[in-house]
Design a protein around this nucleic acid. Structure first.
Lengths: 189, 189
DNA sequence: TTATATAATCTAGCATTGATAACTTTTCAA
DNA sequence: TTGAAAAGTTATCAATGCTAGATTATATAA
C-alpha cells in the first residue's frame, strides 16, 4: 500500500512549497504581497487547493512562524556553544538574537507581530516555541533560582530591542552598548 | 471673516470624531473592524469625505497612535511625579507603562505594531513621540553619562514585556518580579 | 436680491482580496 | 471494466480600500 505514502509525501512537499513561497515573497516584498492567488500561482495549483492545506491565510503565516522559532532556537544554541563563560554566552546569544531579527525581518514579523494564534506556556504550545525559550533559558543559567523570571525578562529585552530597532525608533548605532547593559544585569553575582 | 474659522473648527471637530470612532471600534472589536465604510457610517458622512481628512487608512491609525504617545507621556510623568527616589520613580514608571499597554491594547498596537510610518529620532518626528521618550529619560536619570543608551534599553525592556504579555507569551503572574529585575539594572550605583 | 463660480458632498463603481459552492476530472479498488 | 471517492478547477461571492464623475450647497460679486 505505497500509494497512501506517496500521497502523503506529495502533500507534505506541496505544503512545504507553500510556506517556502510565502516566506520568500514576504521577505522580498512584505507580507501584504503574500496573497492566496499569488501563492497558488507560485505552486502552480488553483486557489482552493491552499485551503486543503491551511484553514486560512493566517494559518500559513503561523506555519512560517513556527519554522522561524525552530531556526531561532538553533541559532541561539550555536551562539551559546561557540562562546566562553556565562557572560560571554549571554552576550553571544543576545547578539545572535538581534542579528537573527535583522537578517529575517519578515520572518521575525510573522513570529511576533502577526501570528496572534501562537501561544506560549499553554498545553498546545508547539515544541519549536518551547525550544526557543529553552535555548534562552540555558544561556541565562539554570543555576539561578529565578530562571523563568530572568529568562522572560531577557527575552522581553531582546524582543523590545529588535522591534524598536526594526521600526527605526532607537538608534542603529548604539546596539552594542545596549546589549552590554542588558547582559550586565543578568550576569550572576 | 469668521466663516473660514467656523469651517476650520468644523473640519477639526470632524477629524477628531473620525479618530475617536476609529479608536473606540478598535478597542472594542479590533483594528480589522475599523473600515472606511464603518467610520463613514459612524460620523454620518459618505466614505470619500474621510479622504479629505486622511490620505489613507494607515494615516488614521497613525493619528490615533500619535494621540496615544501623548497620553502615554502624560501617564509616565504622573507616575514619576507621585513617587519618591530614583528607584521608586523607575518602578512607578515601569508599572505605569505596562498598565497603559494593558489598559489600551488596541491603542498600543497602533502605536507600536501598526503605524510603521512613525519614526523617532528623525527631523519630522512628532513632538508627542519625543515627549514620550523624554518622560522615560527623566525617570532613568539625566545625571547618567549614558542617558540615551539607558533610556533606549529601558524602553525596549518595557515594550518587550508589554508585547510578550499581550500576546500571551510570558506569564501574567510574574509581572512584578520582572519589573523589579529591570529596575534593579537601571538604578544608579 | 440674484446669478455664478467654487467648495463640499454624494452616488456609483473599480480592482483586489479571502473564501467557498458547484462542477469536472482523475484515481483506484472491487 | 466500472463506479464511487478523492482531487482539482472554474466561477463566483461579499467585503475592502480607494476614486472618478455627478450633484448639491455655499459664498461672493453684480
Amino acid at each position: 500500500m505505497g500509494i497512501a505514502e506517496r500521497k502523503g509525501r506529495e502533500r507534505a512537499e506541496r505544503e512545504q512549497r507553500i510556506t517556502a513561497a510565502a516566506r520568500l515573497i514576504a521577505e522580498n516584498e512584505g507580507w501584504n504581497a503574500v496573497t492566496i492567488r499569488r501563492l497558488a500561482e507560485e505552486i502552480e495549483y488553483s486557489q482552493p487547493v491552499l485551503y486543503a492545506h491551511f484553514e486560512n491565510r493566517d494559518a500559513i503565516v503561523a506555519a512560517v512562524a513556527v519554522q522561524g522559532f525552530g531556526e531561532l532556537a538553533a541559532a541561539l544554541r550555536q551562539a551559546a556553544y561557540g562562546s566562553a563563560g556565562h557572560q560571554g554566552a549571554l552576550e553571544s546569544v543576545a547578539t545572535a538574537y538581534l542579528a537573527f531579527a535583522r537578517a529575517h525581518p519578515a520572518l521575525y514579523e510573522a513570529m511576533f507581530t502577526m501570528a496572534t494564534g501562537l501561544r506560549f506556556a499553554e498545553a498546545d504550545t508547539r515544541p519549536e516555541l518551547k525550544d526557543a525559550f529553552a535555548a534562552l533559558a540555558e544561556a541565562v543559567g539554570p543555576s539561578r533560582t529565578d530562571v523563568e523570571v530572568a529568562t522572560e525578562t531577557f527575552w522581553a529585552a531582546l524582543h523590545g530591542l529588535a522591534d524598536l530597532e526594526r521600526s527605526g525608533r532607537i538608534r542603529q548605532g548604539a546596539r552594542a552598548a545596549r546589549v552590554t547593559l542588558v547582559v550586565n544585569c543578568l550576569v550572576e553575582p
